[in-house]
Protein backbone atom coordinates (compact mmCIF):
# COMPACT_ATOMS: atom_id res chain seq x y z
CA UNK A 1 0.00 0.00 0.00
CA UNK A 2 1.59 3.30 -0.98
CA UNK A 3 1.76 5.53 2.05
CA UNK A 4 0.34 8.97 1.80
CA UNK A 5 3.26 11.41 1.80
CA UNK A 6 2.50 12.96 5.15
CA UNK A 7 1.04 10.25 7.34
CA UNK A 8 3.01 10.18 10.57
CA UNK A 9 3.10 7.02 12.64
CA UNK A 10 4.95 7.04 15.95
CA UNK A 11 5.11 3.91 18.09
CA UNK A 12 6.69 3.39 21.48
CA UNK A 13 9.33 6.06 20.93
CA UNK A 14 12.08 6.37 23.54
CA UNK A 15 15.10 8.64 23.71
CA UNK A 16 17.38 9.45 26.58
CA UNK A 17 20.37 11.74 26.88
CA UNK A 18 23.52 11.18 28.85
CA UNK A 19 24.59 14.34 30.63
CA UNK A 20 27.84 14.92 32.44
CA UNK A 21 27.43 15.89 36.05
CA UNK A 22 30.33 17.63 37.74
CA UNK A 23 30.18 18.49 41.42
CA UNK A 24 29.56 22.21 41.83
CA UNK A 25 32.69 24.19 42.52
CA UNK A 26 34.95 21.31 41.63
CA UNK A 27 38.30 20.65 43.26
CA UNK A 28 40.23 23.41 44.88
CA UNK A 29 43.28 25.13 43.49
CA UNK A 30 45.69 23.25 41.28
CA UNK A 31 43.98 19.96 42.01
CA UNK A 32 41.32 21.16 39.60
CA UNK A 33 43.84 20.58 36.86
CA UNK A 34 43.91 16.84 37.51
CA UNK A 35 41.41 14.88 35.48
CA UNK A 36 38.24 14.64 37.51
CA UNK A 37 36.07 11.59 37.60
CA UNK A 38 33.00 12.56 35.68
CA UNK A 39 29.74 11.03 36.58
CA UNK A 40 27.09 10.60 33.94
CA UNK A 41 23.41 10.85 34.43
CA UNK A 42 20.79 9.59 32.06
CA UNK A 43 17.81 11.81 31.39
CA UNK A 44 14.86 10.21 29.67
CA UNK A 45 13.43 12.74 27.22
CA UNK A 46 10.87 10.44 25.63
CA UNK A 47 9.51 7.27 27.17
CA UNK A 48 7.08 5.44 25.00
CA UNK A 49 5.45 8.13 22.88
CA UNK A 50 2.87 6.94 20.35
CA UNK A 51 0.41 8.65 18.03
CA UNK A 52 -0.70 8.77 14.43
CA UNK A 53 -1.27 11.92 12.40
CA UNK A 54 -3.38 11.79 9.27
CA UNK A 55 -2.50 13.82 6.16
CA UNK A 56 -4.16 17.19 5.76
CA UNK A 57 -4.62 17.85 9.47
CA UNK A 58 -3.29 20.49 11.83
CA UNK A 59 -1.98 19.08 15.09
CA UNK A 60 -0.72 21.10 18.01
CA UNK A 61 2.06 19.65 20.12
CA UNK A 62 2.23 21.30 23.51
CA UNK A 63 3.85 20.71 26.84
CA UNK A 64 5.88 22.56 29.44
CA UNK A 65 9.55 23.34 28.84
CA UNK A 66 11.66 20.22 29.05
CA UNK A 67 8.73 17.92 28.32
CA UNK A 68 10.32 16.31 25.26
CA UNK A 69 8.63 18.31 22.48
CA UNK A 70 11.87 19.43 20.86
CA UNK A 71 13.32 15.94 21.02
CA UNK A 72 10.22 14.64 19.30
CA UNK A 73 10.41 17.35 16.61
CA UNK A 74 14.08 16.59 15.97
CA UNK A 75 13.37 12.89 15.61
CA UNK A 76 10.47 13.55 13.25
CA UNK A 77 12.71 15.86 11.20
CA UNK A 78 15.35 13.16 10.87
CA UNK A 79 18.14 14.99 12.67
CA UNK A 80 18.06 12.90 15.83
CA UNK A 81 18.02 9.17 16.22
CA UNK A 82 15.85 7.63 18.95
CA UNK A 83 17.00 4.85 21.25
CA UNK A 84 14.06 2.66 20.39
CA UNK A 85 10.62 2.71 18.86
CA UNK A 86 9.32 3.13 15.34
CA UNK A 87 8.60 6.26 13.35
CA UNK A 88 7.50 6.56 9.75
CA UNK A 89 6.60 9.73 7.92
CA UNK A 90 4.96 8.94 4.62
CA UNK A 91 6.46 5.48 4.85
CA UNK A 92 10.02 6.71 5.39
CA UNK A 93 12.04 6.32 8.57
CA UNK A 94 13.29 9.88 9.11
CA UNK A 95 16.78 9.24 10.48
CA UNK A 96 17.51 6.16 8.37
CA UNK A 97 16.28 7.62 5.08
CA UNK A 98 17.23 11.17 5.93
CA UNK A 99 17.95 12.57 2.48
CA UNK A 100 14.68 11.37 0.95
CA UNK A 101 12.74 12.32 4.07
CA UNK A 102 14.00 15.89 4.42
CA UNK A 103 13.25 16.60 0.75
CA UNK A 104 9.56 16.11 1.59
CA UNK A 105 9.25 18.20 4.73
CA UNK A 106 9.52 21.87 5.54
CA UNK A 107 10.68 22.94 8.98
CA UNK A 108 10.57 26.33 10.65
CA UNK A 109 12.26 26.86 13.99
CA UNK A 110 11.00 30.11 15.50
CA UNK A 111 14.24 30.60 17.39
CA UNK A 112 16.65 29.80 14.56
CA UNK A 113 17.00 31.10 11.06
CA UNK A 114 17.36 28.90 8.04
CA UNK A 115 18.00 31.87 5.77
CA UNK A 116 21.52 33.06 5.13
CA UNK A 117 22.30 36.06 7.29
CA UNK A 118 24.36 37.94 4.73
CA UNK A 119 22.30 37.14 1.65
CA UNK A 120 19.29 39.11 0.44
CA UNK A 121 16.06 37.18 0.99
CA UNK A 122 15.58 36.47 -2.70
CA UNK A 123 19.12 35.10 -3.10
CA UNK A 124 18.40 32.78 -0.19
CA UNK A 125 15.26 31.59 -1.97
CA UNK A 126 17.27 30.95 -5.15
CA UNK A 127 19.76 28.94 -3.13
CA UNK A 128 16.93 26.86 -1.68
CA UNK A 129 15.56 26.31 -5.19
CA UNK A 130 18.92 24.77 -6.14
CA UNK A 131 19.23 22.79 -2.91
CA UNK A 132 15.80 21.20 -3.38
CA UNK A 133 16.24 21.01 -7.17
CA UNK A 134 12.93 22.76 -7.81
CA UNK A 135 12.36 23.10 -11.58
CA UNK A 136 12.63 26.80 -12.58
CA UNK A 137 9.07 27.18 -13.90
CA UNK A 138 7.57 25.62 -10.78
CA UNK A 139 9.84 27.76 -8.63
CA UNK A 140 8.66 30.96 -10.30
CA UNK A 141 4.99 30.28 -9.65
CA UNK A 142 5.53 29.12 -6.06
CA UNK A 143 7.78 32.02 -5.24
CA UNK A 144 5.32 34.52 -6.73
CA UNK A 145 2.48 33.05 -4.69
CA UNK A 146 4.42 33.03 -1.43
CA UNK A 147 5.69 36.57 -2.01
CA UNK A 148 2.11 37.69 -2.48
CA UNK A 149 0.41 35.82 0.38
CA UNK A 150 3.18 36.53 2.89
CA UNK A 151 3.69 40.11 1.65
CA UNK A 152 7.44 39.79 1.11
CA UNK A 153 7.81 42.10 -1.89
CA UNK A 154 9.04 45.10 0.09
CA UNK A 155 12.09 43.42 1.55
CA UNK A 156 13.07 40.70 -0.93
CA UNK A 157 16.27 42.57 -1.77
CA UNK A 158 17.32 43.13 1.86
CA UNK A 159 19.88 40.97 3.63
CA UNK A 160 18.21 38.76 6.24
CA UNK A 161 20.09 40.44 9.09
CA UNK A 162 18.24 43.69 8.37
CA UNK A 163 14.73 42.24 8.66
CA UNK A 164 12.42 42.77 11.60
CA UNK A 165 11.40 39.63 13.44
CA UNK A 166 7.95 39.67 11.85
CA UNK A 167 9.42 40.04 8.36
CA UNK A 168 11.96 37.34 9.06
CA UNK A 169 9.34 34.84 10.21
CA UNK A 170 7.30 35.44 7.05
CA UNK A 171 10.44 34.91 4.97
CA UNK A 172 11.23 31.76 6.99
CA UNK A 173 7.79 30.35 6.24
CA UNK A 174 8.24 31.02 2.53
CA UNK A 175 11.70 29.45 2.66
CA UNK A 176 10.27 26.28 4.18
CA UNK A 177 7.59 26.00 1.50
CA UNK A 178 9.41 26.70 -1.77
CA UNK A 179 9.73 22.97 -2.43
CA UNK A 180 6.02 22.46 -1.64
CA UNK A 181 6.49 19.88 1.14
CA UNK A 182 3.38 17.85 2.07
CA UNK A 183 4.36 18.15 5.75
CA UNK A 184 5.25 21.40 7.49
CA UNK A 185 6.74 21.26 10.98
CA UNK A 186 6.57 24.52 12.92
CA UNK A 187 8.50 24.85 16.16
CA UNK A 188 7.22 27.93 18.01
CA UNK A 189 6.55 29.92 14.83
CA UNK A 190 4.99 32.89 16.61
CA UNK A 191 7.53 33.33 19.40
CA UNK A 192 8.33 36.96 20.08
CA UNK A 193 5.98 38.30 17.41
CA UNK A 194 3.59 41.22 17.88
CA UNK A 195 -0.16 40.66 17.69
CA UNK A 196 -0.72 41.61 14.01
CA UNK A 197 2.23 39.43 12.93
CA UNK A 198 0.86 36.51 14.94
CA UNK A 199 -2.55 36.90 13.34
CA UNK A 200 -1.00 37.07 9.87
CA UNK A 201 1.07 33.93 10.46
CA UNK A 202 -1.94 32.04 11.82
CA UNK A 203 -4.11 33.05 8.88
CA UNK A 204 -1.41 31.97 6.47
CA UNK A 205 -0.99 28.58 8.14
CA UNK A 206 -4.74 27.97 8.12
CA UNK A 207 -5.03 28.85 4.43
CA UNK A 208 -2.05 26.69 3.56
CA UNK A 209 -3.74 23.75 5.26
CA UNK A 210 -7.12 24.36 3.64
CA UNK A 211 -6.01 25.21 0.13
CA UNK A 212 -2.99 22.97 -0.35
CA UNK A 213 -3.88 20.23 2.12
CA UNK A 214 -0.49 20.60 3.77
CA UNK A 215 -0.23 18.57 6.96
CA UNK A 216 0.89 20.79 9.80
CA UNK A 217 2.53 19.86 13.07
CA UNK A 218 2.94 22.81 15.37
CA UNK A 219 4.58 23.31 18.75
CA UNK A 220 3.94 26.48 20.68
CA UNK A 221 3.65 27.99 24.11
CA UNK A 222 1.07 30.46 22.85
CA UNK A 223 -2.24 28.76 23.49
CA UNK A 224 -3.96 31.16 21.14
CA UNK A 225 -2.03 29.53 18.30
CA UNK A 226 -3.57 26.25 19.38
CA UNK A 227 -7.05 27.70 19.76
CA UNK A 228 -6.87 29.36 16.35
CA UNK A 229 -5.31 26.50 14.43
CA UNK A 230 -5.24 23.06 15.90
CA UNK A 231 -8.04 20.57 15.46
CA UNK A 232 -6.20 18.24 17.74
CA UNK A 233 -3.81 18.73 20.62
CA UNK A 234 -1.17 16.31 21.80
CA UNK A 235 0.11 17.21 25.25
CA UNK A 236 3.57 15.91 26.06
CA UNK A 237 4.87 15.83 29.61
CA UNK A 238 7.61 13.83 31.31
CA UNK A 239 8.34 12.22 27.96
CA UNK A 240 4.87 10.74 27.59
CA UNK A 241 1.66 11.62 25.81
CA UNK A 242 -0.52 13.04 28.60
CA UNK A 243 -3.48 13.87 26.41
CA UNK A 244 -4.38 13.50 22.77
CA UNK A 245 -7.73 14.99 21.86
CA UNK A 246 -9.52 17.96 20.31
CA UNK A 247 -8.84 21.04 22.39
CA UNK A 248 -12.48 21.35 23.48
CA UNK A 249 -12.31 17.87 25.00
CA UNK A 250 -9.20 18.85 26.91
CA UNK A 251 -10.97 21.93 28.17
CA UNK A 252 -14.07 20.01 29.21
CA UNK A 253 -12.11 17.40 31.14
CA UNK A 254 -9.67 19.81 32.75
CA UNK A 255 -11.38 23.02 33.59
CA UNK A 256 -15.00 22.97 32.61
CA UNK A 257 -16.14 25.67 35.06
CA UNK A 258 -17.69 29.02 34.13
CA UNK A 259 -17.58 32.31 35.98
CA UNK A 260 -20.58 34.60 36.34
CA UNK A 261 -20.09 38.24 37.28
CA UNK A 262 -23.24 40.21 38.09
CA UNK A 263 -23.14 43.92 38.93
CA UNK A 264 -26.00 45.51 40.80
CA UNK A 265 -27.11 49.12 41.25
CA UNK A 266 -27.24 48.59 44.99
CA UNK A 267 -25.47 46.08 47.24
CA UNK A 268 -25.41 42.58 45.78
CA UNK A 269 -28.11 40.38 47.29
CA UNK A 270 -27.23 37.40 49.40
CA UNK A 271 -28.53 34.29 47.69
CA UNK A 272 -28.60 30.68 48.73
CA UNK A 273 -25.94 28.91 46.69
CA UNK A 274 -27.11 25.71 45.02
CA UNK A 275 -24.76 22.70 44.64
CA UNK A 276 -21.93 23.28 42.17
CA UNK A 277 -21.75 27.02 42.76
CA UNK A 278 -19.23 28.91 44.86
CA UNK A 279 -19.05 32.59 45.63
CA UNK A 280 -15.85 34.54 45.16
CA UNK A 281 -14.81 37.59 47.14
CA UNK A 282 -15.75 40.75 45.20
CA UNK A 283 -16.85 44.39 45.68
CA UNK A 284 -20.17 45.17 47.47
CA UNK A 285 -22.15 45.67 44.32
CA UNK A 286 -20.65 42.69 42.54
CA UNK A 287 -21.63 39.08 42.79
CA UNK A 288 -18.94 36.72 41.44
CA UNK A 289 -19.79 33.04 41.17
CA UNK A 290 -17.89 30.04 39.84
CA UNK A 291 -20.18 27.32 38.67
CA UNK A 292 -20.03 23.94 37.04
CA UNK A 293 -22.25 23.94 33.94
CA UNK A 294 -22.63 20.17 34.21
CA UNK A 295 -24.48 20.61 37.51
CA UNK A 296 -26.31 23.87 37.03
CA UNK A 297 -27.06 25.60 33.75
CA UNK A 298 -26.28 29.27 33.24
CA UNK A 299 -29.97 30.05 32.59
CA UNK A 300 -31.03 28.46 35.90
CA UNK A 301 -28.40 30.46 37.74
CA UNK A 302 -29.61 33.68 36.14
CA UNK A 303 -33.18 32.90 37.12
CA UNK A 304 -31.95 32.52 40.69
CA UNK A 305 -30.46 36.04 40.58
CA UNK A 306 -33.51 37.67 39.10
CA UNK A 307 -36.59 35.50 39.68
CA UNK A 308 -39.43 36.09 37.22
CA UNK A 309 -41.66 38.84 38.48
CA UNK A 310 -38.88 40.86 40.09
CA UNK A 311 -39.61 44.48 39.31
CA UNK A 312 -37.00 45.98 37.01
CA UNK A 313 -34.53 48.31 38.72
CA UNK A 314 -34.88 46.74 42.16
CA UNK A 315 -32.93 43.53 42.78
CA UNK A 316 -32.18 42.53 39.20
CA UNK A 317 -28.50 42.85 38.20
CA UNK A 318 -27.62 45.80 36.01
CA UNK A 319 -25.01 43.83 34.09
CA UNK A 320 -24.10 40.15 33.75
CA UNK A 321 -21.11 38.50 32.10
CA UNK A 322 -20.37 34.80 31.89
CA UNK A 323 -16.85 33.75 30.92
CA UNK A 324 -15.01 30.53 30.29
CA UNK A 325 -11.61 30.05 31.88
CA UNK A 326 -8.86 31.30 29.57
CA UNK A 327 -7.02 28.76 27.55
CA UNK A 328 -3.90 29.63 29.52
CA UNK A 329 -5.75 28.69 32.72
CA UNK A 330 -6.83 25.39 31.23
CA UNK A 331 -3.33 24.43 30.25
CA UNK A 332 -1.75 25.61 33.50
CA UNK A 333 -4.26 23.53 35.41
CA UNK A 334 -3.54 20.56 33.19
CA UNK A 335 0.22 20.85 33.68
CA UNK A 336 -0.27 21.23 37.45
CA UNK A 337 -2.40 18.15 37.59
CA UNK A 338 0.32 16.15 35.88
CA UNK A 339 3.28 17.81 37.53
CA UNK A 340 3.63 15.14 40.16
CA UNK A 341 3.33 12.22 37.74
CA UNK A 342 6.85 10.80 37.52
Amino acid sequence: MPSSPARIVVEDLCKSYRVAASPPGGRRGLAGWLPARRSWRTIAALRGVAFTIEPGTITGLIGPNGAGKSTLIKILSGILRPDSGRVTVGGLVPWAQRLRHVARIGVVFGQRSQLWWDLPVDDGFALLRDIYRVPPALYRTRRARLVETLRLADFLDQPVRQLSLGQRMRAELAAALLHAPPLLILDEPTIGLDAPSKLAIRAFIRDLNRQDGTTILLTTHDMHDIEALAERVIVIGHGRVLADSPFETLRATTLSGRRLIATFDGPAPAIALPAGVSRLPAADRVLALDFDPARIGAADLLRLLAPPGTPAGTAAPADVTITRPSIEDVISRFYERHASTP
Partner: peptide
Protein backbone atom coordinates in the same frame (compact mmCIF):
# COMPACT_ATOMS: atom_id res chain seq x y z
CA UNK B 1 22.95 28.51 18.40
CA UNK B 2 21.65 25.16 17.15
CA UNK B 3 20.94 26.49 13.64
CA UNK B 4 23.28 23.80 12.32
CA UNK B 5 20.12 21.69 12.44
CA UNK B 6 19.10 23.40 9.22
CA UNK B 7 22.19 22.04 7.45
CA UNK B 8 20.96 18.56 8.37
CA UNK B 9 17.48 19.36 7.10
CA UNK B 10 18.72 19.78 3.54
CA UNK B 11 18.51 16.93 1.06
CA UNK B 12 22.24 17.15 0.37
Amino acid sequence: GGAVAHDLLRPV
